[in-house]
Simulated scan of single mutants.
Amino acid sequence: MPAHADGGVGRRIAYYRSVVRPKMTQQQLADAACISLGTIRKIERGERGVTDATLEAIADALGVDPSRLRTDRGATPTPVHDALPALSAAIATYDLPEDGPVRPLHDLRTAVAEAVRWRVAAQYTRIVRKLPDLLTELARAYHAAPAEDRAELAGLLVKAYRSADAVAYKFGARDLSARLVDLMRWAVPEAGDPALTASVAYVRTETFFAARAHTAGLRALEQALDAAPAPTATPAIAARGALHMRAAVIAGRAHDNSAAAHHLDEARTLADQVPERIYCGTAFGPDSVRTHEVSVAVSLGDDHIGRALDLATEWKPPKDLPAERRSGFYIELARAQLWTGLADDAFESLKVARHIAPQHTREHPWVREDAATLRRLKRADSETLTNFAEWCAAT
């Protein structure tokens, strides 16, 4: 029988014994599971593995399903996870789409605009239900289009790929996400839209975040800034400002305080010149920059964390800011609060994020990490915290 050997099982057993079943001592658990006290102690300390039979006996004594204690327990599959293979299949034939119907161009514009709205609202289930067929249809339309329509269809493909990528990236399908970024970069030159090209550079940063190649990502964004259109018209101002926002965050992850401050200053200056809106699929404006100030402070850590807390005291993201961005603000804020010992405040921020955008919050790795930390910090019974941690599969 396989043995679960790392400390994760032991930590979860200790948690359920002392928190979910308060006042249950190690001796009481040993007696209930018909296991020696020494064995229970070693398992909880991570000093020995536990076979499936032993784990089932402990789970039975605790009154929980054994799957809640296993080391290899991960996030419960969702309809979104189940639909990801369909997205992969849809892009596999991007250059050789099967024959089939194609709607008029104005209908395709409407469908892509709807997918963009779903993305910024963090409505990922709707995306995975509709995007596979839409991506196939757009590829079919693009390859069959007359020359005068190809540029617009290429732009529509870029926007649709980006909506699909939002799901792939946030639900952990990093290889699929990287492939979608490659397809965006393939299609965008044909679109001939400098602002859209800048938005693809913005999205490409995901691959650097995923690889923790922050310095390289910063370099790529600064190259994109050099190539971005001059900020004379509103779309160009927003495109450049969004790149500066993104560069500030990845500079923070690279612990480059000077670069982070520079790019944040540039983003603020540009944001003051345009209204808060969605530009080429990216929210930009004064409120978006404020949310990024929190992200930069958390990325830099240490002495900068206080700035995140100060900003949150002064300002909250308005309801007309996209749901994905608002929930991200509270996820970042929760981490700052947790790091400064404000555990209760951190949990409240996570609950706000969940209320705003449940799918985005549930799949965010920081939410799982912070919920798990909160569970370890709590010593009193907290059914709400336990439920939240189970909801996001915190281990």
Rank of each mutant, 00 (worst) to 15 (best):
A164R: 09
A187I: 01
T205I: 11
F208G: 09
R174Y: 14
D133Q: 11
A213F: 08
R119M: 04
P146V: 14
A139E: 06
A210V: 11
V128H: 00
A187Y: 01
L196F: 08
R150N: 01
K130T: 15
A220E: 15
L157M: 06
A211H: 12
A111D: 15
I127L: 07
L176Y: 04
R129Y: 05
A151Q: 05
L135A: 00
R162P: 08
P194A: 04
D175N: 09
T136Q: 12
S163T: 09
A213M: 10
A121L: 09
L183H: 06
T136S: 13
A220R: 12
R162W: 12
A173M: 04
D133N: 09
A160Y: 05
A160V: 05
T215W: 10
A121R: 11
V120P: 05
R204A: 15
R117G: 09
R109N: 04
A151K: 05
M184G: 07
G217S: 10
A211G: 13
R140N: 02
A211N: 13
A145I: 00
R117E: 13
S177P: 09
V188K: 04
L183I: 03
L218P: 09
A166P: 08
V200N: 14
A145C: 03
D165L: 12
K130V: 12
T207F: 09
A168L: 06
G192I: 01
V181C: 09
A115E: 11
P194D: 05
W186T: 07
M184T: 07
W118Y: 11
A198C: 14
T197L: 08
W118E: 10
V200A: 12
A191G: 08
V120C: 08
L157Y: 03
V112E: 02
A147G: 06
Y161N: 04
L218F: 11
A115G: 10
A178P: 02
A166E: 13
R140V: 00
L135N: 00
Q123A: 08
A168Y: 01
A216T: 11
P189W: 05
V116T: 15
A154C: 02
G155S: 04
Q123I: 06
A115K: 06
R179I: 01
L176D: 03
D182S: 12
L176R: 02
A144I: 05
P194V: 03
R140H: 02
G192M: 02
R204W: 10
M184Y: 06
F209G: 12
A141Y: 00
S177C: 13
A121F: 07
A211C: 12
E206M: 13
L153M: 02
A151P: 03
A111K: 07
L156M: 07
A168W: 01
V188Y: 03
Y161Q: 05
T125K: 06
A210W: 12
R162D: 14
L135T: 02
R162G: 12
H214L: 08
L196T: 06
H143N: 02
F171Y: 14
L135H: 00
R117C: 08
M184E: 15
A115N: 09
L131G: 00
H143I: 03
F171H: 05
D133R: 10
D133S: 10
L108S: 01
A141M: 01
G155D: 02
A168G: 13
Q123G: 02
Y161T: 06
Y161H: 14
R179A: 09
L176K: 03
